[in-house]
């Protein structure tokens, strides 16, 4: 199943890149299409952030990930480089768990 996801995902993403090189320009130039293509990553990534932070399988939970994301938010506000934002979140969650302060 994992190989199916990897290969089907990759094939589709390549196809999307290829399609752009052959379809007539005016289709993707339409304002509605342009807006949707621009907004899709924003809605999907935000949904992923929410699920990765608050969901455990099908239940909503509050655990060490929430303060970790808060710490990451502060880091992002100060324009911290990507790798540091990720490290700050990991260290926050790991420390809270190590000291038994959060699940």
């Amino acid at each position: 199943m994992m190989w199916f996801a990897v290969l089907a995902g990759a094939a589709g993403c390549y196809a999307l890149k290829y399609v752009g090189s052959i379809i007539p320009a005016h289709i993707l130039e339409q304002p509605i299409v342009k807006r949707i293509v621009l907004l899709l990553p924003i809605s999907l990534l935000s949904a992923l952030v929410a699920v990765q932070t608050f969901a455990t399988s099908q239940s909503l939970t509050l655990d060490a990930r929430v303060p970790a994301l808060a710490a990451a938010t502060v880091a992002l506000r100060f324009k911290t480089p990507f790798i540091l934002v990720v490290l700050i979140a990991a260290v926050t969650a790991a420390a809270l768990r190590y000291f038994g302060l959060a699940a």
């Binding site: 907004l39 992923l48 990991a90």
Partner: peptide, 25 residues
């Protein structure tokens, strides 16, 4: 125990953060 689940959330957040440029976004 290494906080990698939180790191995933933060990484995704860092990807979307610069894309949000307007109230609509």
């Amino acid at each position: 125990s290494f906080g990698l689940d939180a790191a995933i959330a933060a990484g995704l957040f860092a990807l979307v953060w610069p894309q949000i440029k307007s109230r609509t976004d």
